[in-house]
Structure formats: C-alpha cells, structure tokens
Design a protein around this nucleic acid. Structure first.
Lengths: 337, 337
DNA sequence: TTGTATGCGTTATCAC
DNA sequence: GTGATAACGCATACAA
C-alpha cells in the first residue's frame, strides 16, 4: 500500500496525492475529495522511512535514560512521562535508549544513522562522556541536568545548591544548630553525579554561613539503605536535630529509623529536602520540601530541543529551576535536649 | 555523508562498501581494509531510514505503555526496563507510545506508517480496543496481559487467579476464616482491567472452596488510598483477620492503617499477595507474596515478538506465569478474637 | 572478486 | 491546477 496505489485508484498523479496530504499546494475540491476517499477506504498512511529519507528528518526524538536495571526514581519517571507526553503533543515519537553499563551500542545506534532529530539526555554527571559524544556527533541535544562545563550546551536543571541551602536556612531559623545532609548513593556521587555535588556544596555553604555544624552522608537510593544510614547517623551524631536530603527513595527508610529511635517528627526531629511531590506527601508527617516540577521540566526540555533543532545557530539556553519550598509538617522548632 | 562518499574515497563501487559492511559476500582483504579505514575516518554510519526503506523493516519495536500521567507501578516499570534491555540486546530500538486518554494519535502513529516491526502492548483489559486495532492493522504484536478472547493473539501474563487462590489457601491453612481482597483502583476494575477481574475470581473461588467468608474492595493505587481503604475495611468488617492483595502501590498505606489500628503483623493480622519484589521486601514485616518476574517477562515478550515476526504463520503462543509464593514474615496463624 | 543498475515510497522541482 | 520525474541512501540481482 503506497502513494502510487492511491494515485492509480483515484486516477491522479502520485504528486497530487502527496499534495492532498501535505496541503502544500492547492488541489481542486473534486480531486481532493476523490483522493481522500481512496485514502480512507484503503486506510493508507505514508511510509515513515520513505518520508524520513526524503525529508531528512525522522520526526522522532531520542530519550537517553539511566540504565533501567537500577530502579528509576519517581522524579526520573516523571521526566520520562512528561517528555513522552510533550513529544506526542508535537506529533513526535520517542525512541528510548538506556545508557551506561553495557548499553553503549544502544546509545550509538540511536545517535548515529540519523535515527532521531534530536536527543534529550537525563541523569547528567559533572563530566559526562555522552555529552562529549553528542557534541562531536553534531546532533542537537538538550540535557536535564548539566555538566561542569555546560556553557555551550542547552540544558535545564534543578538548582539543588539553592534549594538545599534554603532548607538549611529554614531549619536554622527554627533554632536547629546541628544538621545532617543525606546525599544520594556513594557510587553516584563518586561517579560525579551533579545534583549530589551541587547539593552538598549548597549545604556546606549555608551551614557555614549560619555558623552551624553539619555532617553529610551518602545513602543508597532505597528504603532499607535509608534506614541503616539514619541509624548510623543518630548513633554517631547524637546532637543532630535535623536532616536535609535529596534522596527521595530513602525517605521511607529514614522515617522508619526515626520512628524506631523514638524520635517524633517534627517535635523531636525535623526533616526537609528536595523530592518528587509524591514522596513528600507520602512521608509521615508530610515532608516540607521543594517539589521538583518534573512534569513541567520534561515539557520544557522538549520545547527547548525543538527550538534548538529549528535554529541551530541560536545561542545556548539554560533554565535553572528553584521551586519554592512547600511548608508541610515535617519541620518544627529545634527541641531542647 | 553517505555510502557513495565512502566508495569514492576508497576508490571502489558503492556496492562494495555495502558488502564490506554487511559481510554478505567476500571482499578481498586489501579492499576491505581500505574501505573500513575510510569508514572509520569519516565515522560513517548507514542511514537508518534508507536502510529501512530498502529492507522493509525498521529494526525497531513499539512499546505501548499506560498513560504516563498516572504513575507507572513498579511492575510496569520493570516491564519497560526489561523490554528495552532485551531489545537492545537484539540490536533493536524501542519506540515508546503512551496510550489511552488523548494519546490515540501517538498510538496510531506508531502502528501505522510501518514505523515499527512489531509491538508490545502492556496493561491489557478484558476488552481492549488496541488489541482490536493491532489485529486489523496486521502488525505483529505480543501482549503482556491478555484479553478475554485472546486465543489467536500471542501473550504472556501472570496467573493472578491461581496466585491469589494460593494466598487464600495459605491463610486458610493458618486458620483464618474471614478474609478481604484488596483490588486495584475502582476505575481500573470498571474499565475491565484483566488482573483485577481474574484475581477477584480466584479469590471468590478459593474462599468458597474453603468455606471462608470473603469481602472484596477496590482501592486507589497509592499509599493514601490504601490507608483509607483498610481503615474502612477494619471498621466495617471487624472479623477480618487477613488481607490478600494485588495492589502493590497501596501497600505502604495498608501497613500504616494496620499499625494505626494497633494490629501487629503477623500476630494480630496477616497479609499476602502478588507484588513486585521491591514492594514486598519494603513492607514491614516483609510481605509473603508471589514475586512477579517482571524482568524475565519483558525479556520473554521480546523473544516471543521476534519469533512471531520471523514466523507469521506459526500458531499463537501463550505463557502464563505462576511464580511460587515467597514465604516471608507477614502471615501467621489466625489470632484468637 | 568487483562493478552496474534498479527499486524501495516519498517529496519537490519542473514543465504543461 | 495537474502530471511526469528526479532525487533521498541503501541493498541486491545481475553482469563482468
């Protein structure tokens, strides 16, 4: 079933069918009706490969996700969901590529061979080979997160340093003097995961500015790890009265550890951080946290990418999100000890 | 950058370059080396669209996921992850398509226009338009889950009826006489979501067989909903001593409600079900449950699809998984009341 | 062992 | 307002 078949049955030239479909030149009403009727009858759809070959674009975006073997966080999932949604809205398809581990071939396949018109990259590290590779491939791309030297790339990110600093200031205002920062997993941080490093820097700066003492600790990205981490933390630093965190997946475990230690939140202990809305609201009591606007960010990433594809020479654009901290119920005045 | 350019620089015919790449006929060592050197130097990769047009296949699979707006469950995420992984392993790309809601266009785009060689469909309902549509489109597809009339389609599913029945028998053996079944969300069940209906049927049959009393209740797929649901349940049916569930996302809420009601698990109350391993292990105490082998199933779905593509006339294949129930710590003898 | 020629299904340029 | 035709980049049957 191809455009020639439609043309033959409608008794017109192939080009006429093409123009009926694209509307790029005027076609008499009668012929258009006849062609459309045949298209309808045979349920004809243009062949995507032929069109891509001729037009030089695929109407497809590549989305490079973290290796799926390690569970995606809620936030990452939100990005994927919103990117797919926004792409669909722009009549674009999304080609998924896991990266990292032994998935180099998949990544290479997606970015070479003109398979996609552009790429959205997630889970960026301060130094990121994939960014280097995309730069050299000359394929338009936008990153969610940004490398250390991202002046020339288009990106969109959450301002972890600022958000974590705000959490520290909030707790300091409440009288807390000894805080802990619960980071993402040690492997991730060691690999140069941007949010981990930037949030830690923000924590350090704010703690210093307010003259507090602060300890930081890496924590596996899951409940059991969070529980163990906080147990150790409470053990080693009995004076800590508040936690600041960006590790949403560890929250259920953190909660269990505090409960187990007989610490009531927020009476005996406060906690605040950056987390997907869902995690924050599921915390008991609901978590005072900056809600990452993952849905909005995915949408924005697609818009930026389309802009970049449309105007390759435009100067790079960066967007840094610093959503307000939603005051919920997990922070309160520092306890007397 | 195309094959002709490589040919010119290497001083050979285009077909020779093509054969060097595909290896489909022997090429003298010297010429092959020369060609490969040029390919390497220019970092040439065959154009995917041209290849797809010529070969009549795209080396791409379509993966139709539930509308991403509603959070994907862990299990669904496991399917996506393993499908992408298995596809990458077979050097195939995965085109993602959200379905349901206002995403019909995306779905249509993926299945028409020969954009993919085959489709994997998730989150199947007993009556499912998408299955009908794919049947009529004549595109090879495999479903994870199965419709009521799935004799002629290739599918792979979890045997919810059997697994839930096993949970009931397990609890009955422990002396429980009054059980409750916590289903997925009312909307999902009303929409004809297969697992919900089949699990309920299995529950009803097993309860009848053992002469127990059973109540069933639909429950939103999230923690807060689970908490509210179980509160109502305990209120209305004080004699219930055990819950059987397929609603993994509600588990944290169920746990909170039981705790809040002062019921210790498993001393005062037992709970068992079907859940992703992660949810089961995060439950306190760890949940006695059938661990859905999501990773294995995604892999299998890809294998089945490739088989179906390779042999279009082969009789349909069905795989029903009934993994054993992992005995953990959430079930115990019925309490005296 | 290598080269030549053709067609996959579109879109767009040119001629009418 | 419409039709014929030349690419797009590749794979392969056929010729040498």
């Amino acid at each position: 079933m191809n455009i020639g078949e439609i043309a033959k049955r409608a008794g017109v030239a192939r080009s006429t069918v093409s123009y009926v479909i694209s509307g790029k030149r005027t076609v008499s009403d009668e012929i258009r009706r006849r062609v459309l009727a045949v298209i309808e009858e045979l349920d004809y759809r243009p062949n995507a490969a032929a069109r891509a070959l001729k037009e030089g674009r695929t109407r497809t975006l590549g989305l490079v996700i973290p290796p799926a073997s390690q569970r995606l966080t809620d936030m990452q999932l939100g990005f994927v969901a919103s990117v797919v949604e926004a792409a669909a809205h722009a009549d674009l398809d999304v080609l998924l590529s896991p990266s990292g581990g032994d998935h180099e071939r998949s990544f290479e396949r997606v970015i070479t061979g003109r398979r996609v018109d552009g790429v959205i990259l997630m889970e960026i590290r301060l130094e990121d080979d994939r960014v280097t590779r995309l730069r050299q491939a000359g394929l338009p791309f936008v990153t969610i997160g940004h490398t250390a030297d991202a002046g020339d790339v288009w990106w969109i990110d959450v301002d972890y340093a600022t958000l974590i600093a705000r959490c520290v200031h909030h707790l300091a205002d409440l009288g807390h003097r000894h805080l802990a920062f619960v980071n993402r997993s040690a492997e991730l941080v060691a690999a140069g995961y941007g949010p981990g490093h930037r949030a830690l820097a923000g924590f350090g700066a704010a703690v210093a500015e307010r003259g507090l003492t602060g300890v930081d600790i890496c924590c596996p990205d899951e409940a059991a790890g969070g529980e163990a981490c906080v147990e150790r933390l409470l053990d080693a630093h009995a004076d800590v009265t508040g936690i600041v965190t960006i590790n949403e997946a560890a929250l259920p475990g953190i909660q269990r550890a505090l409960q187990h230690a007989g610490l009531a939140v927020p009476r005996d202990f406060s906690i605040a951080g950056v987390a997907g809305r869902h995690w924050a609201e599921d915390f008991r009591p609901p978590l005072t946290a900056a809600d990452v606007p993952a849905l909005e960010m995915g949408d924005q990433a697609v818009r930026l990418l389309l802009e970049r594809i449309a105007t390759p020479e435009a100067p790079p654009r960066h967007v840094l999100h610093a959503p307000p901290i939603s005051l919920r119920a997990s922070t309160g005045p520092a306890p007397f000890r």
